[in-house]
Simulated scan of single mutants.
Amino acid sequence: MPNPFNEQVIEEFRANGGRVGGYFEGARLILLTTLGARTGTPHTTPVGYYPDGGERVLVIASAGGAPRHPDWFRNLVAHPRVTVEDGVFRYEADALVLERAERDRMFARAVEADPGWAEYQAKTDRVIPVVALRALPKDGPPNIEADSMAEALKLVHDAFRRELTLIRKEVTEQGAASLGAQLRVNCLTLCQGLHNHHTGEELGIFPMLAGHRPEAAPVLDRLRHEHERIAELLDELRRVVAAEDADPGRVLSEVDRLTSELEAHLTHEEEQLIPFLDLAGATR
């Protein structure tokens, strides 16, 4: 039976490239589509997630500490192939329920990031499961929920903006004592994502534009130089985050520096590149 609250969140999520307000505002959120355990009917549920580096994300079947597992968890146990939407990309994934030792490590990492998970566990006798969602390898470009290259670029940029805002908030709330394990993963995942995005632009969008719009050459040259500068900032953030005695204050300083220069780069790229992308799309 449809859940009115979930339906509203799903509609808002899809209409706004992953941005929602209300209860989920400022949270990392995905839409998880599972097949009903008995019926095989698709069901979509908004769930929070944690980056895990590489090709997987983690979701926690807390159900707010209820005595029973949530429906989406029972569904994926029966049918582990699921669909994930993150506001930019839509992809198929395999769901793996983590075994106890790994589950305990990942759950502890989540509790370190948000003590509310421990409160949920304390409310129930069941061991709250942690599930890894691993994206399936796919030939060709990823499925972006956009109608044009220009729209896709803006969606990707906005996702990086949101993630940087979240990381900055998390570093600030972490305090001066230590840098949590999940926060380290979040930072390193962001760094890898930005690197992959810029590499994709330089191998895909830039050569395409150079061929269709030769007058874009000065813009592309400047953007390549900006990519080099962002790469330097990412390398420094990686170095600071990976240090055994990482200082949250130093991490915050590097996140602020990256945020400032990356926002200027993203804004400049949108102002200069999107008109060329629109022209290239119109002539193809």
Rank of each mutant, 00 (worst) to 15 (best):
N6W: 09
E7D: 15
Q8T: 13
V9M: 12
I10H: 07
N16Q: 14
N16M: 13
G18L: 15
G18Y: 14
V20S: 12
G22Y: 14
Y23C: 08
G26S: 12
A27D: 12
A27S: 15
I30S: 11
L31K: 15
T33M: 09
T34A: 15
L35D: 13
A37N: 13
G40E: 10
P42W: 15
T44Q: 13
P46K: 13
V47Q: 07
Y49Q: 14
Y50Q: 13
D52H: 07
D52S: 08
G53Q: 09
G53Y: 01
G54I: 11
E55R: 14
E55P: 08
R56D: 07
L58Q: 08
I60F: 14
A61S: 05
A63E: 11
A63Y: 06
A66M: 05
P67W: 01
P70N: 10
D71S: 13
D71C: 02
F73D: 02
L76C: 01
H79Y: 04
H79P: 00
R81G: 04
E85T: 03
D86L: 11
F89E: 13
A93L: 12
L96E: 12
V97N: 00
E99S: 11
A101G: 07
E102G: 09
R109D: 03
A110F: 03
A110P: 01
A110V: 08
D114N: 10
D114R: 00
E119G: 09
Y120L: 09
Q121S: 04
K123E: 09
T124Q: 02
T124D: 01
V130D: 05
V131L: 12
R134I: 15
L136P: 04
N143T: 07
D147Y: 03
D147C: 04
M149E: 14
A150T: 04
E151Q: 14
H157P: 10
R162L: 08
E163K: 02
L164D: 01
T165E: 11
E173C: 01
E173M: 05
A176M: 07
A177L: 12
A177G: 02
G180V: 02
A181D: 09
C187F: 00
T189E: 10
T189I: 00
L190D: 07
Q192V: 02
G193R: 15
H195I: 11
H197W: 04
G200W: 08
L203S: 14
G204N: 13
G204R: 13
F206A: 08
M208C: 05
L209Y: 04
G211C: 05
H212W: 11
R213I: 11
P214L: 11
E215L: 04
P218I: 02
V219I: 11
D221A: 14
D221R: 12
R222G: 13
L223Q: 03
R224E: 05
E226W: 03
E226Y: 04
E228W: 06
E236I: 15
R238Y: 00
R238T: 09
D245G: 10
D245N: 15
D245K: 14
D247H: 03
D247Y: 01
D247T: 01
P248L: 03
R250E: 07
S253T: 06
D256T: 02
D256F: 00
L258I: 00
E263M: 04
E263P: 00
E263L: 02
A264Y: 02
H265S: 05
L266V: 06
E271S: 08
L279M: 01
L279F: 02
G281W: 00
T283I: 09
